[in-house]
């Protein structure tokens, strides 16, 4: 039993009906607890790649094993279940549901995954206490923040709440899609450090999308999404897509 979490072999993905593959990945392996940096220009396909890993978008052909399960072979509801039970996701922005409190936002994944819920129960704490613990570790220890409306938080605070939500229930994989692009430099670094620290504690695998080259040394592995889309130059490819969409 090797300890690889994500195993990709000859993966191909193309957008609806388009015959031209958008992403081709001959081979990629991510190990348990590994922190992977994904780089690439805007529009190069980084988010698309994360959507493939999370199983929201179905791959077109090839093999992508997540925790040993090939996503091409499983139904979309099974992919949803894998995501619910084994992943945590942080977006670039708009991470929180505006009509729920901070704590309620952090607790959302618990309602969608028995696995995450049971992991917390196994620790012998309540889900709410776990949420408070994560928020505190991410620098949001003040009680009044926990019950606040999320719209009253700064963007930096919102991203930390999103990180707490991704981390709750200790999922094996954390997907972070440019989570600091809306933050200033200091906050960005602090956020990344906190996230890396939490992932280490949980022994979670982190896939972190950013185009900030200076954070390179904090990761064990880094890939450029261009490597997987370079067969077809991005601009040409986008044009083609556009034309095909129009026709």
């Amino acid at each position: 039993m090797n300890n690889s979490i994500i195993q990709i072999q000859d993966l191909q993905f193309n957008w609806d009906k388009s015959k031209v593959p958008f992403i081709i990945i001959p081979e990629l392996e991510v190990l348990k607890g590994e922190h992977l940096l994904i780089k690439g220009d805007s529009g190069s396909g980084k988010t698309t790649f994360l959507n493939l890993i999370s199983g929201v978008l179905p791959l077109s052909s090839g093999e992508m094993k997540i925790l040993g399960e090939n996503l091409l072979d499983v139904s979309s509801s099974k992919r949803d279940a894998i995501r619910a039970n084994h992943m945590g996701v942080i977006f670039q922005m708009f991470n929180l549901i505006p009509y729920l409190s901070v704590i309620e936002n952090v607790l959302i994944p618990i309602h969608f995954s028995e696995v995450k819920k049971n992991k917390i129960i196994a620790k012998g704490v309540s889900a709410k206490d776990e949420a408070i613990r994560l928020l505190s570790e991410l620098g949001l220890q003040q009680k009044e923040i926990h019950e606040k409306k999320v719209t009253e938080l700064s963007v930096g605070q919102q991203q930390r709440v999103a990180a707490a939500r991704a981390l709750i229930g200790s999922p094996e994989i954390i997907l972070a899609d440019e989570p600091t692009s809306a933050l200033d430099e200091n906050n960005s670094m602090r956020f990344l450090d906190l996230l890396l620290e939490e992932c280490k504690k949980n022994n979670s695998t982190l896939l972190y999308v950013s185009h900030d080259n200076r954070i390179h040394q904090k990761f064990q592995q880094s890939i450029s999404i261009h490597d997987f889309t370079e067969n077809i130059p991005v601009t040409e490819k986008t044009k083609k897509e556009a034309l095909e969409c129009l026709s």
């Binding site: 996701v89 505006p98 969608f112």
Partner: peptide, 15 residues
């Protein structure tokens, strides 16, 4: 749609 993307990310099925 934002809300829905969040719910999708925590594993909610489209259904």
């Amino acid at each position: 749609r934002r809300e829905m993307a969040i719910l999708r990310s925590v594993g909610a099925s489209p259904f």
